[in-house]
Simulated scan of single mutants.
Amino acid sequence: MSYDYAPPPRFEDHPSPEKPTGRHPVNIGHLVMGLAFIAFVVVWALIVSDTVTIDSLEDLRWLLPMPWIVGGSVGLLVAMLRRQ
């Protein structure tokens, strides 16, 4: 009777591969939506703190598109810079 059998190696016995370090590429969609969310919070804070006086809903016509304009502008800028 021979006892030369070795069990198969376990996952825990293998050394872990080196993890790459450094920066990862920017996800433009996440960046744009995060900036739009922050800009909406700023718009809300301006309205609640009475920094911007709103007499009617028509006064919001210039203020509510601002988060989308800011987020889209930054997204376009990052997309252009990424190509270079």
Rank of each mutant, 00 (worst) to 15 (best):
A79H: 08
H14T: 01
L60P: 08
S16T: 07
I28F: 03
A6L: 09
L60M: 13
L35M: 06
R61A: 09
L81D: 07
F11K: 06
W44Y: 12
P65K: 09
L57G: 09
L57E: 02
M1C: 07
H24D: 11
G34W: 10
V78I: 08
Q84A: 12
L64S: 05
E12W: 07
K19H: 05
V26W: 07
P65S: 03
T21K: 12
M1A: 14
R10Q: 08
W68L: 15
I28S: 02
P9K: 09
V78C: 09
G72S: 12
R61E: 11
D50W: 13
G34N: 11
W68F: 15
W62P: 05
G75I: 13
R82W: 08
M33A: 12
G22W: 01
D59E: 03
E18V: 06
V78G: 04
I69S: 04
P20F: 00
F37H: 08
P7A: 07
N27Q: 10
I38F: 13
S2G: 08
G22A: 10
S56L: 09
R23V: 12
V52G: 01
K19L: 01
T53D: 13
V52E: 07
V70Y: 10
H14E: 02
W68I: 14
V48Y: 15
G34I: 06
R83P: 01
M66P: 03
H14W: 13
S16D: 01
R10D: 06
A79S: 14
G72K: 00
S49A: 11
P20C: 04
H30W: 15
P8Y: 08
L77A: 14
W44R: 13
V48M: 13
D59P: 03
L77W: 08
G71M: 03
R83L: 10
P67F: 00
D13F: 04
D55R: 07
S16L: 03
N27L: 04
M33N: 15
T53G: 13
G72F: 02
D4N: 12
V32S: 00
P67K: 01
P7F: 06
V43N: 10
V48L: 12
V43K: 01
L77T: 10
V32W: 05
E18C: 02
L63C: 10
G34P: 05
G75D: 05
V42E: 09
P8H: 04
T21C: 10
D13T: 00
F37A: 15
F11D: 01
R82C: 06
A45K: 09
